[in-house]
Amino acid sequence: MTTTAPRQESRATTPPLPPARGPLSAAVIASLRDSTAPLPDAGAVTAADPYGDDAQLALYLLYELHYQGFAGVAEDREWDVELLRLRGRLEDRFLARLRAEAPSRPSAADAIDALLIEPVADEDAGVSHWLQSAGGLRELREYAALRSLYHLKEADPHAWVLPRLYGRAKAAMVAVEFDEFGAGHAEDVHARLFADLMADLGLDTAYGRWLDAAPAEALATVNVMSLFGLHRSLRGALVGHFAAVEITSSPGSRRLARAMRRTGAGPAAERFYDEHVEADAVHEQVVRHEVIAPLLAAEPRLEADVVFGVEATGLLEDRLGAVLLDAWRAGRSALRTPLPEGGGRAR
């Protein structure tokens, strides 16, 4: 927690549009600047790699209209039918690829049980293991910068599912979200705790500031949440995604808290992950027993999508983890554009 004067909320400002990464994202940016500019046709979407920088940025920009928007872009473009048509085409490709690649499991219980088994400590086991044992401030700053795409709107994509749930599943999902949103205290909203962490690491906390730096693999981990959250038909996948996040967060957060302590990142940096160790140990139990169980009791046909949500999340996190570790082990930046010099506590 900051002890200085209250900082400006990171979402008090609306970010500028980022540079394009290819023809699809260039067309979306041109259209957001000038609604008469032409948008890509179905063929152009089909030609693009659904996991690639161009398609992922195009999707990210279209989803962002539902959250914070962009400076100079009319807010009602959120419901522009031509943008929505393009978004639908991009989503179809992304979703088809995820469905083709996500491993299948016989039941939601199988998918969740697999998450409840922890690998033994090993630098090869994942990003948080590596950061804990080998990461320096440079890597922790890069990690925070690219995770800020999600954490500065933490739990927002999951709020979209609330109107699609009812009864026990709804009550429990709302309770977890309430906790994510600070349980009635603005200073405890998890997005705010993350902004405090970024300040400790000397990172600009303005919303959208690190979008251009984030590789496609990082965009995909956020896009999948928006994809699942914005479609009622994917409510099972959204719940599966949320369960995967909550179940795996607590031990990972413990490792990242240790990384922050070891590098002297600062008290707010430690607090963000310390809070997630304890909070997510609770959220895991609530999501498993009070969200998934009643949801599947009421709508058993959603089980395959709960599994899909769990597995698609793991798939995309694995892709991101591989990119990060490849770069960091080779002593390279994992970002598209290196961070400005800095490090250590901002103030």
Partner: peptide, 16 residues
Amino acid sequence: QSEGDGPADLCPGADE
């Protein structure tokens, strides 16, 4: 089970 580390961290984690 998975290499992943996720938002706030998505990894079926080990205990260090």
